[in-house]
Design a protein around this nucleic acid. Structure first.
Lengths: 316, 316
DNA sequence: CAATCTTCATAACGTAGAGTTATATTAATC
DNA sequence: GATTAATATAACTCTACGTTATGAAGATTG
């Protein structure tokens, strides 16, 4: 015998409310509706649920047993509703995000930490990639959001791009670098030092070349290449090398005293860092929440950088 | 947002079966029916439950959460169904039974013990009373079944009476009574001993008088009256008293060596012991089961008594 | 890569049942 | 016995579930 679970829910409401009228009120239904539902349930199970001809409705033993199950069912649907609300509000679920390694490690992962504290039930799946690969992953539906530099007017069709930070690179070195102590810096000062390069397929590698060419250096020595941010920082720290990194990355490492930017204004790429996603694929709530969180964090970061900026002297 | 619990059940079936078609088969429904139910559920909660355009249907995270609740709901309805089946089969519930004290204590309670072992989830509410009171209790709906002596052709309208044992009384005494050793008993032998009487409102009290009058004793001494069976037996054991008791009661005490019947055939009442119930009130399954159990036990008891009977010599 | 297979989605339609309001019954109370 | 309060019934509408038939699309295979 298959019993309709919602009938048990109704039964439970009637029993705990202490009557048909009150039960119907609790359920937000009319009294006759509930009355008939109970009658049909009685007919179906072939047993009375309430003693006949008793006016403060008296539940039978079987009724109480069934009502207890009804309560369980009510609780389960309630939990389900809450789960839906939580999910729809972006407070649970998964956001799959990918981006260029240096950015993810140097900036995004710090932001993710804050997000996790605020929304512990949202799972973040992070992976790495560069623009073309990221777009493939987006198209294939393997990731929900890409964080990468892109020229604002070069966004391919089918994608949406929100700029969150102007592309801006700096020459970076370890805080104990000889040049860090110099008060006035000349271009000639930096040519003597070896360079560390990001992985050759990274857009930063291209930036490095352009930057050095821009300041007149065509022949430079790359002493290390291919590492992730942590490796780059470690090598910088243990040597006199220089490198080119996004300013935001260096900025966030500053208080850790592991990186500083040399006050030389260099050519900045025309790209902007931004959030890339497929326009056709509906965003899951957790992704929306994560994306907005990241946008807000970057807005705040931009502002902080802007503040600091005014107190600094940059050489061209 | 109110979610229909049966939708969650269906979702759970689809998820655990691994597809719409299999899920529908498990549920005993057609595939389009299940398909549409899922679609409507998705529309109602505003989130996908299965990833779009994936052919081995892949549940989303939210879907798995809801399916887990669906499983709980399924389990609850299953428990409810089992409870109904158990109840309808008379294997759970309550039977309220009442009867004359001596019978209840001496015979019925022994049978109840066996019933409880066989059906531990049936609760027996026992109480005491005599014919008129029992009928009132039946009429008021306070008890389901009365066990009492009644003349077969004197059953009042509205009641059903099933005879289960002919009324038959014996003169009983303790096993260590002086008369117990005598091989041949004469009526004159018993007049010397004091008598114990049941409560004055009991039909047994009337029987006692008739019996004694029947064997020519009009002037007898009642040394104790009003006790229940245990008190009667205790008094018998500690004195040389005699009493009149239903043969079935004495018979069942025999192996306990606490009572014996004197082999004197006395006048038996025209009443029969039987099961009395209201004809208009539908019997709950547990009551049916209990009543049939008692009938069967009495049939077996009758048979056993009949066997013993043939090997005994009764004096008139 | 076309063909095929499998599985899910959609369409169309009948019906059960859950909702409503209005009203009749009935148990409890004074 | 009259009154009151709660439940049952009636009559009707409409949602939604069930069906079968069929279309569409991802997966698989030669």
């Amino acid at each position: 015998m298959k019993i309709d679970p919602s009938h048990l829910e109704i039964l439970s409401a009637v029993v705990s409310a202490g009557g048909l009228t009150e039960g119907a009120a609790v359920l937000g239904k009319s009294q006759p509706s509930v009355s008939r539902t109970i009658s049909m349930l009685e007919a179906r199970i072939g047993s009375r649920l309430f003693e006949k001809g008793r006016r403060p409705l008296r539940p039978t033993e079987l009724c109480l047993t069934l009502a207890a199950e009804g309560r369980d069912i009510f609780d389960a649907t309630e939990r389900a509703s809450q789960a839906v609300i939580k999910y729809a509000g972006g407070k649970s679920g998964t956001a799959r995000v990918a981006g260029s390694p240096i950015f993810m490690d140097g900036v995004i992962s710090n932001m993710i930490a804050g997000f996790q504290v605020a929304f512990p039930d949202v799972r973040i799946d992070q992976s790495y990639g560069y623009a073309s690969g990221l777009m493939e992953q987006l198209a294939a539906g393997n990731i929900d959001l890409a964080i990468c530099p892109m020229k604002n007017d070069h966004v391919p069709p089918g994608y949406d791009f929100e700029a969150i930070l102007p592309g801006r690179n700096v020459i970076a070195c370890a805080p104990n670098h000889p040049l860090a102590r110099k008060t006035s810096l000349k271009l000639e000062d930096i040519v003597a030092y070896p360079w560390i390069a990001p992985p050759p397929d990274s857009p930063l590698y291209e930036d490095l070349q352009k930057v050095l060419k821009g300041i007149g250096i065509t022949d430079f020595k790359v002493s290390f290449s291919g590492g992730s941010l942590v490796s780059v920082m470690n090598v910088l720290k243990g040597s006199d090398s220089l490198t080119v990194l996004p300013y935001s990355v260096v900025f966030l490492q500053k208080h850790l005293k592991s990186l500083i930017a040399l006050p030389i204004r260099i050519e900045h790429p025309e790209r902007q860092l931004g959030l890339l996603r497929r326009i056709d694929r509906p965003e899951r709530p957790a992704v929306v929440r994560f994306r907005k969180y990241i946008k807000q964090e970057f807005a705040s970061l931009s502002h902080t950088i802007g503040e600091q900026e005014r107190n600094m002297l940059w050489r061209k």
